[in-house]
Design a protein around this nucleic acid. Sequence first.
DNA 1: CAAAGTCAAGAGCAGTGCTCTCAAAAGTTG
DNA 2: CAACTTTTGAGAGCACTGCTCTTGACTTTG
Lengths: 239, 239
Amino acid sequence: MSAEDSPAKKPGPRERARAQTIADIIGLGRRHLAEHGASALSLRAIARDLGVVSSAVYRYVESRDELLTLLLIDAYNELGDAVDRDVDALAEGDFRGRFLALARAVRHWAVQEPGSYALLFGSPVPGYRAPGDRTTEPGTRVIMRLVGILDAAHRAGALTAVAGGAVVPQALAGNLAAVRDELGLDLPEEVLARGVLVWTSLFGAVSFEVFGQYGPDTFPAREELFQHQMETLAGLVGL
Amino acid sequence: MSAEDSPAKKPGPRERARAQTIADIIGLGRRHLAEHGASALSLRAIARDLGVVSSAVYRYVESRDELLTLLLIDAYNELGDAVDRDVDALAEGDFRGRFLALARAVRHWAVQEPGSYALLFGSPVPGYRAPGDRTTEPGTRVIMRLVGILDAAHRAGALTAVAGGAVVPQALAGNLAAVRDELGLDLPEEVLARGVLVWTSLFGAVSFEVFGQYGPDTFPAREELFQHQMETLAGLVGL
DNA sequence: CAAAGTCAAGAGCAGTGCTCTCAAAAGTTG
DNA sequence: CAACTTTTGAGAGCACTGCTCTTGACTTTG
């Protein structure tokens, strides 16, 4: 975090070259991620592609885990940017449209970058634990955006009351209230609970597709399937 | 593949010992899976635990991928058995109860065997592709059971009509009709579509929990959260 | 211009999947 | 029971992995 403690001293030709090399490594890392999967990420292979001996890479990246962290942050931010872009393209008051755009953006990015998606939302990499202080902020951008849409819709009175809501048990209501207070939201527990369900369901649907859980040709109309699922989920929270 | 062409000749002391050794290897494999993750599965480590040199293991398991396949089938069947057990414990006509039991069984097994769960529903293992002819049958047991419950409920007229159903687009309706015919179901497209959503959402919720997507202490009441989510999903399909 | 800092290379350690050869053990058969 | 056949385990070896350490060269800076 406090690596460059001098906020804006002078870039210098050296740090520029160094930053460029690190960026190249991340780029190659993403390619390897997409082609061979997260846990097959090899610093040696990256060094080869970089035209350099393996040990040289350690000058720029502390370890394989460090590279994984860099890729994690990079991927989270790319996903977050993609979501922001598509959501912001719609009117602020178009809550349902914004939710559907968010969902489509997640799916689109995931299908296009299955390796990175697997790193973020797939099985945890065996010996690796993400450093929370650097990954939580980028890692929560999508859910923040999602609850933001819900909250805005609720504040605008645009959420239609949903029927057949099961009661939220005491313990869960407490957790939800804590989340609401921490994020400064205005949503009732029932809506927040359904929002969490929508969140997990969205990624469940995307994961099924990206990880190949559907049969090879059970759902050729995957786009339509996903769209229909998201519309159903939108209805579930009254959007 | 057609190793034992004589269906039921004589077990023989040799094949018995061999089968036992393979069973031991699978058992150790499952332990390693749980402790170090799917892609860190090492035949050499298993050989060590087995008290044998690495090359000896290849006498029993063709390759690392073959062992992965064996573990995959084993895990699918364990999950299937767990689900069957819990579902069958309830009356045939208790459709909603059976669905909730199925969901709880999936979650329970997943939490208890995160390694195996990750192998089945997490990121695909880099160089590995499951042989469909041996894994599809055990791999579809849960969804078969789920649609079975839905179909039975529908045939019994126990599915309450759900409001606000988005229309199922043409292409998707075709896919769903094909699935329905192939499985001999009686469900209308709208219900089947929602059934698929429930399916993916169930595993989305479980994956979030098992893969640690929730913050470390955002939802201490995970049991209640899951239960509430499943009840909401049950309502979604009219159960 | 020389000191300080940075860099790539190479050797080396311990681990991996997998193949091969060879001798011992075990079961099967006459 | 002895001879034969099959199965088994051990060991060496290949190519790969992450990572560390030392060495020599190169660039930037005071």
